[in-house]
């Protein structure tokens, strides 16, 4: 398996009283994920923790397609558990979590996600968004109604269309990508990409060791007001 350097950080931000985000890193199987919980204190934080706990217990088969199936199965199971938990403990109150995960292998990787937490890749100075938000504004962008810049400022930019716990059956999206030594990957919650421009993310991601990049991303989000919880995982692909 490729050699990976990573740093995972989460912060409650400036405005929120609790941190409903959660991060998980399982380098032994090259799996990293960020979850952004919804539902308020003792619901959102429980939701995101349920997601990361489920992912932390995933076993990695040799075949990469089965690895993706295993991650999807874990998320499907936690989707049902979360809905049961919400019905039992919160009288059916909304409880859910976004999830974005990166699965690594030699020369390639996969992104599995639901919601608007994102995976970026920085290669040769270019920042590329590998995931695609499950949100109403993203649908408008896909349909050519809005530009990406207009989408960021849209009043419904926080309306998501998929989440773990959001529906009886969970559908996650999967994309594959090639991995080269030196690539930097960023998993983050919307608390980061709502506060920092793509240019700022790219510049920060390129700077210093992964731990410095991760801390600097959090610091900048806080300096910009951090209206939401902020979570980042910065991963660098080494040589095979």
């Amino acid at each position: 398996m490729a050699d990976w350097q990573y740093c995972a950080l989460t912060d409650q931000g400036v405005k929120r009283k609790h941190n409903e985000d959660a991060v998980v890193a399982v380098p032994d199987i090259a799996l990293w994920a960020v979850a952004d919980g919804m539902g308020g204190h003792e619901a959102g934080d429980v939701a995101s923790k349920m997601v990361v706990d489920a992912l932390a217990s995933v076993q990695r088969p040799d075949n990469f397609s089965l690895f993706i199936d295993a991650v999807e199965d874990a998320l499907t199971a936690v989707n049902q558990n979360m809905r049961d938990h919400a019905g039992r403990e919160y009288a059916g109150r909304t409880m859910g979590s976004t999830v974005v995960s990166m699965l690594g292998a030699d020369g390639y990787g996969a992104c599995v996600w639901a919601g608007d937490s994102r995976l970026y890749r920085l290669r040769d100075g270019n920042l590329e968004t590998l995931s695609r938000d499950h949100s109403q504004v993203q649908r408008l962008v896909d349909a050519g109604v809005l530009s990406e810049a207009e989408a960021d400022a849209h009043p419904n930019s926080n309306v998501i269309t998929r989440a773990v716990g959001g529906a009886a059956a969970l559908v996650v999206d999967v994309v594959m990508f090639d991995v080269r030594p030196g690539d930097r990957y960023l998993l983050c919650s919307d608390g980061l990409h709502n506060e920092l421009s793509k240019e700022a993310i790219a510049a920060t991601l390129a700077r210093g060791p992964v731990s410095d990049s991760a801390q600097s991303l959090i610091d900048q989000a806080i300096q910009n007001g951090a209206r939401d919880n902020v979570s980042v995982i910065v991963i660098e692909a080494g040589g095979a």
Partner: peptide, 27 residues
């Protein structure tokens, strides 16, 4: 894990969460 369950998606927003929390309190 590969049973016949099919998805039906419902949008969740921060507003939904706030409304649900507000509705839950008087109840």
């Amino acid at each position: 894990s590969e049973d016949d369950t099919h998805p039906g998606m419902k949008a969740i927003t921060d507003k939904d969460v706030r409304d649900a929390a507000r509705a839950a309190k008087p109840a």
